[in-house]
Design a protein around this nucleic acid. Sequence first.
DNA 1: TTATTTCATGACACCGGTGTCCAAAATGGA
DNA 2: TCCATTTTGGACACCGGTGTCATGAAATAA
Lengths: 350, 350
Amino acid sequence: MAKQKQDDGQAPKLTINDIARMAGVSKKTVSRVINRSPLLNRETRDKVEAIIQETGYVPNPQARALALGRNFLIGLIYDNPNVQMILSMQKGILEALHGTEFELVIRPVDRGSNLVMDDIRGFVTRQRLFGVVILPPMSENDALARMLDEEGCRYVRMGSAVLDDAEHMVASNDREAVADAVRHLIAQGHRRIGLIAGPHGFRSAQERREGFELALTEAGISLPRSLIADGQYTFESGISASESLLDLSPRPTAIFASNDEMAAGVLYAARLRGIAVPEELSIIGFDDTPVTTRVWPPLTTVRWPIVAMGRAAALKLIGTAIGEGAEVNEPSMFSSTLIRRASVAPPPAS
Amino acid sequence: MAKQKQDDGQAPKLTINDIARMAGVSKKTVSRVINRSPLLNRETRDKVEAIIQETGYVPNPQARALALGRNFLIGLIYDNPNVQMILSMQKGILEALHGTEFELVIRPVDRGSNLVMDDIRGFVTRQRLFGVVILPPMSENDALARMLDEEGCRYVRMGSAVLDDAEHMVASNDREAVADAVRHLIAQGHRRIGLIAGPHGFRSAQERREGFELALTEAGISLPRSLIADGQYTFESGISASESLLDLSPRPTAIFASNDEMAAGVLYAARLRGIAVPEELSIIGFDDTPVTTRVWPPLTTVRWPIVAMGRAAALKLIGTAIGEGAEVNEPSMFSSTLIRRASVAPPPAS
DNA sequence: TTATTTCATGACACCGGTGTCCAAAATGGA
DNA sequence: TCCATTTTGGACACCGGTGTCATGAAATAA
């Protein structure tokens, strides 16, 4: 029955009882101090807080989790292949969580598997997660949102447009961003502009396509079906999709690819055919990933504030928990910027 | 005092007591079944296990964490700027953790801050982590390893070479891998080969440099100091470091860059000067990141099995916990492969 | 001054598991 | 048949917090 004091570590592991004893109050009173209960005498609070400061006591998260029936863990759920995006999101979320008691737990899921729902349900209920951030395209799954509602798990959905569930969304305005990019091409004099679309079923792909069509319609430019090619958001699909466009006669003088990977694929395909970029072909991508500056010429692209959005999502989740008076009111709609590099030029004189 | 049955979710949340009642045994007996205690009657075990199967009962991790004083969380600690590596490691670890009761918690730390140690200590002790995986260069910090030992926290260090602490290492053999790459250049006829080294203080940088020098020494090629330039593992540093090499006369006919980002920088700098790759200059990088195939020409590089190493690290950590008889014996040293692409050719006839 | 209300605090049970220790049952030897 | 020894299972305390309710003190009203 000897207290295990120096058994392995030298950290004596203070508990709430130790603090209570030192302060000469009950453990419940210490608990009140920790949880900022309003019905506390000022003196008592100060005394206990001083001791907590002094000793560096930190409540045991496991015990809290058990008593509260809720953990201080935020889950990050994704089924997305885009590593850059995942890591930037992760970065933003972690920035917001830094200094709080929250930790980030990663959960990649297997899109397509029909066990996904049960998998996620088990994840959030077993771990009693405080909340989750869902990355696209999984975030577009309304059934998932309903399930989380049922389970009483908070969530924020990242997206390329505000869906019905606006309350839980942090979104970028992809449509308008793409329209701006295409307007830029039109302003340079381009009229035959090709589109490499993203995969069917991705909301972002749809939004970007709509933005593309919007800009052309505004300018009164017709869009033959042949100028649209389907891609899968991968480099390889960018190469193969652009081949059908580059074989056209007359060839498009510019191509908007729905993400940077595919834009890099266009550049690659153009080089294989000896087509000069940007002299004979202008290219614009989307995401502003590092690859845009590694290739030659550096690619004009659209930058969306992923890190800031990740931060906003996390704050939105934990805001109610740490909101000390000021209601955390993060913007839910973020806008993107056209980054002009060297892959756009006026079309060649025909 | 009414049981909250259908208050928010429809999950009745089975507890060990429910199972015990249903099986007609005490909760402790159920606990024994869960923990595979050997001193149990076969019939009792089967009966309880059947009920667990039937009801889908899963023990509450928070309660277990509290009672055991240890969580089923694995921490991933990194201070590394290389997003590709972080994500690949994460992927490997998650693969190994999939289907187990373990979850992955992410912890980026701020290298250079002198609070790092306390930060990590707080992280592992508060959360009572089962163990952590440490990515380079943080993994080279011996003081950190000692601290984790003190705190009784398991750990695995990822590295580019086996350090003193071999028991806790999962490593790749960078030195030999680089030597192979440089031997390849020599075999093609190169004699004036430049090196862009990684940052001082990174073990990987040192190992790669040693591999470079090893191959030259073997071939009896002398290495003037002017053929070595310092980089920071970034694209930009690759550009500036290569400038000093490309200004030399005679110019090196090949450059080994200590990672792909810097190799991409060399390519960029070469293009700015109108130097043809690979005709006038061969380039080899290290890491086999996606950028190597996005640029033109695709870069020859060294691939190290990051995902497999992450998997091995995780298995090494949890192996003792899930080891059912068979002692998990993952290899601790991984070897790399030279990936030949189009950035290497024989040197120009001088 | 006394009755009533408000406020601050504490005692105690509880969250859902696990460790310790002891009792009952089963087994074996004399 | 009885006692000693080994299994097998349960009662109970405990991990470190939080919720509920009771209690005593102080403040207000009568």
